[in-house]
Every structure is written in structure tokens, then in C-alpha cells.
């Protein structure tokens, strides 16, 4: 168990003013069995009264339609999270296990992943009895066989494309891992969040085994524990994109992101 302080700042600046902007942020962490959020501070730029809602996956949405000129746009989230309260989340989405069980969007396996999956299954042996153990085995294989490298893939890269390149980032690791779980008939979902340290947001996956969703981080080859703060989830990255927007005007844009998570002294 840890008490973490988090600070997530995202800003886009434009060389010319934006005249119209439509956005949806899914950037707010919420309470789960594993984490408890407090002292949450939300700031949206430019300052305005935004709308709030929830999507089908239970993610908190902040969204609005701006018709006022602005040249800076973004959010700043701060708060405290108690993490590692349990080892996983109880399955209570009920009706959503179905959609989490079938290939969708960016997590669809093609022939290449299917061939890899077959190879992995052959080497797995009989020791992996539960869905959890099977998923752990997949995670270890993927951690070994895939290389972390930035700028090779982008946000629209599919699991199959990333696997073909054998290199990519956390989003790609998570998509390929989910694709493999689906082939093994294990429900799996995509998760966005933060990790202790300084840098960007992170992504991993959760798998359902015996009524519990366990966090699995194939990028780091480990299970998700108390140094992780979960933000959103969905079937693939598109379901829980932290920032989605459409704007008119703006000229050239520069995006800056700074995520800082540190342990709070007791």
C-alpha cells in the first residue's frame, strides 16, 4: 500500500487562435477496489464551465464545445491516491464482460499474432491452469519477444502491425497482449494510467480470472501493484483516449505533457 501524489499536466499551444473546439477528456482517475482518490483538483484551460458525463466503460468524461477564441488548451489534474488496496478489482461490470471478450478495433489478432500465439501455447505446457497463470505466461513471452522503442508506431497502429514490427510502446504491448488473451478466451481490457516517476501517461491491460480483474503490465513485464494509478479503461486505446478533440483554426500546434507521480511522505 502506498500514498501517491499525482500531477498530470497537458497543454497544447497554437501559433494562431483556435475559433472552435470540441473535446472530450477521459483524464480523471476514480475510486476502484485497488485505489482511493482524494484531494482531486481539476483545471481546464481556457477556463470555462464544462460538461461531465460517463461513458459505457464507466470512465469519467469531461467535455465541451467551445466557440470562444483561444490559443492555449489543456488540463491540469492533481490529487492523492491510496494504491495497492487489493490485488485486483472484483468483476462488477456484469454486462460488459462480453465486449471485453472479443477482438475489437486495434486489438484484433491477424495471422501473424495467431502464429505467435500458437508457438507460445506450444511452449507453455500444462502448468498454466488458470486464466491468470496463462496471462502471466503471455506477458513474460511478450516482454521477452517485443522491444520498447518510441516513434516506430503511432496511436492508430494495430496490434497486428505492431507485432510485425516487433517494436513499439506501451499501447502496442497492451494491444498485442489483449489479442493473445482473446485467442485464449480470456476476457481482457485496455487500461490507461500513471506510474511513479516523471514522464508520460502509461497503458497496460487487465485480465479476468475467477471473478477478479488483475492488472498486467507487459511493457515492464510485471503485475500492476501500488506504484500504478488507473485512469480509464475500454476495449482498446480508442475507447479510453485521455484527450480527444477537433478544432478549427490553430495553425501549428505543440503539445506538452508532464506526468509526475511520487510517494507522499507519511
Amino acid at each position: 500500500m502506498k500514498t501517491l501524489h499525482f500531477d498530470y499536466w497537458m497543454e497544447i499551444s497554437y501559433t494562431e487562435p483556435v475559433t472552435e473546439c470540441h473535446y472530450t477528456f477521459k483524464c480523471l482517475p476514480k475510486d476502484t477496489d485497488m485505489q482511493q482518490i482524494s484531494e482531486l483538483k481539476v483545471e481546464i484551460m481556457p477556463h470555462h464551465d464544462y460538461q461531465r458525463g460517463e461513458d459505457s466503460w464507466g470512465n469519467v468524461m469531461i467535455y465541451d464545445d467551445l466557440y470562444q477564441k483561444h490559443d492555449r488548451f489543456g488540463f491540469h489534474i492533481q490529487g492523492t491516491a491510496k494504491t495497492g488496496l487489493t490485488v485486483g478489482e472484483k468483476e462488477n461490470s456484469g454486462e460488459l464482460v462480453g465486449p471485453y471478450s472479443y477482438p475489437y478495433g486495434l486489438n484484433k489478432a491477424g495471422d501473424r499474432i495467431k502464429a505467435y500465439y500458437k508457438k507460445v501455447i506450444e511452449t507453455m505446457g500444462e502448468s498454466c491452469a488458470s486464466a491468470y497463470e496463462t496471462a502471466m505466461y503471455f506477458m513474460n513471452c511478450l516482454y521477452r519477444d517485443f522491444t520498447y522503442e518510441k516513434w516506430i508506431t503511432d496511436v492508430n497502429t494495430t496490434a497486428e502491425e505492431a507485432w510485425h514490427l516487433k517494436r513499439g510502446v506501451c499501447q502496442d504491448y497492451a494491444h498485442i497482449f489483449i489479442a493473445m488473451c482473446h485467442l485464449a478466451k480470456i476476457p481482457a481490457r485496455y487500461v490507461t494510467g500513471m506510474m511513479t516517476g516523471e514522464g508520460y501517461s502509461h497503458a497496460w491491460a487487465e485480465i479476468l480470472s475467477e471473478g477478479i480483474w488483475y492488472g498486467v503490465d507487459p511493457t515492464n513485464g510485471c503485475t500492476v501493484g501500488d506504484s500504478y494509478i488507473k485512469i480509464g479503461m475500454g476495449r482498446d486505446a480508442n475507447d479510453c483516449k485521455i484527450n480527444k478533440g477537433i478544432m478549427t483554426g490553430g495553425g501549428l500546434q505543440t503539445q506538452s505533457i508532464c506526468v509526475r507521480v511520487e510517494e507522499k511522505p507519511e
Binding site: S56, L96, P99
Partner: peptide
């Protein structure tokens, strides 16, 4: 069978609970 729901291109998970 649930295959027929979740693998259908016409199924939209965004409509769940709406």
C-alpha cells in the same frame, strides 16, 4: 450465442446502458 452479438459490426458498445 454471444458470438453473434459481439462480433457483429452492427453491435455498438457505446450504446451500452444508454
Amino acid at each position: 450465442p454471444d458470438d453473434f452479438i459481439y462480433t457483429s459490426s452492427g453491435y455498438m458498445a457505446e450504446c451500452e446502458g444508454v
